[in-house]
Amino acid sequence: MTLDGTLQIRINGEHRRVESGISIAELVREIGFDPIRVAVERNLEVVPRSTLAEVQVEDGDDYEIVRFVGGG
């Protein structure tokens, strides 16, 4: 936790500050994505989509947020 009450997290390898008290679903929406179209890994554990709205973002969290793209 920083002095101004924001949380320091990482998303896809990049550092970011977010307000405390938000859920992962809110975090995903805040960066511009629809939670039902992505998958989220938090500190190396997959977060089930059904719980994205319930799990709170915590200071120091490391997220991978992925989607399907073209591939062979």
């Binding site: 998303i11 896809n12 390898g13 990049e14 960066i31 511009g32 994505f33 992505v38 998958a39 991978e64 947020i65 992925v66 989607r67 399907f68 793209v69 073209g70 591939g71 062979g72």
Partner: peptide
Amino acid sequence: VAVRRVNVSNP
């Protein structure tokens, strides 16, 4: 299909 990181700079 492949699984890749979302592009945070271009949602």
